[in-house]
Nucleic acid binder design. Structure first.
Length: 214
DNA sequence: CCCTGATTCGC
DNA sequence: GCGAATCAGG
């Protein structure tokens, strides 16, 4: 697989939408999450809460536009070297709590891997709604909320809920029954002992498609 | 162990 | 440029 414009576009969109590298890789297919991460970085996409690396030395803490509350803005003043005999080292225990994690505002991510907004965060377009250009809206990177195709992986129950094409089509999403493509419950549906023809139930909810061959 | 993203480095 | 291997935190 190569990075076609379209694939790069999907990567961009999903990455910016907060999808994990794994999900993106899964969605794109043919690439590993490492490939996705590598590409994302090469594309300049970056910065996003990483488990690794809590803080960087000279991290330029953007004080953030503290609107009201005259918070004691402490200018870091990048002291070059100079041991500087600490003269006044008694920071008032007043307003100390480090800056709220309000860099790119940490949000939780929904089941579908989509950014959630807390009610209070509901912030309408800051300025008079800029004439947003309606974009084609790529086929991937959406279908929020439910376990979508994008969320499937080797240990996620792939039992389909609903039907492909329907707006709310999604997958079970439970932990898989080790060794099977479905969770325990759905394995129960998928694998049944033969019953006498006469009492056999007709509806065969096949997962659709076979194992995806890439 | 599972997950994450970051980095490195041979190709 | 690419991505597997590796690292390292949650």
């Amino acid at each position: 697989m190569s990075w076609t414009d379209e694939r790069i576009d999907t990567l961009r969109t999903m990455w910016e939408a907060g999808q994990t590298a794994s999900q993106i890789a899964e969605a794109l297919g043919g690439v590993s999450r490492n490939a996705v991460i590598g590409k994302a970085h090469r594309l300049g996409l970056q910065a996003r809460p990483s488990p690794v690396r809590a803080n960087e030395p000279a991290a330029v803490e953007t004080p953030a536009p503290a609107p009201v509350a005259p918070a004691p803005v402490v200018e870091p003043e990048p002291e070059p070297i100079q041991p500087e005999p600490v003269v006044e080292a008694a920071p008032e225990p007043a307003a100390e709590p480090a800056r709220e994690p309000q860099q790119p505002v940490l949000r939780s991510v929904g089941p579908g891997g989509f950014v959630r907004q807390s009610p209070g965060e509901q912030q309408p377009p800051p300025s008079p709604a800029p004439p947003r250009r309606l974009v084609p809206a790529k086929p991937s990177a959406e279908i929020a909320g439910k376990t979508s195709l994008l969320d499937l992986n080797d240990r996620i129950c792939k039992w389909p809920i609903g039907h492909p094409g329907e707006p709310d089509f999604h997958f079970c999403g439970d932990k898989v029954n080790p060794g099977f493509p479905y969770c325990v419950a759905h394995c129960g549906h998928a694998y049944q002992a033969q019953l006498p023809r006469r009492d056999r139930r007709p509806p065969p909810p096949l997962p659709f498609g076979g194992p995806r061959v890439r």
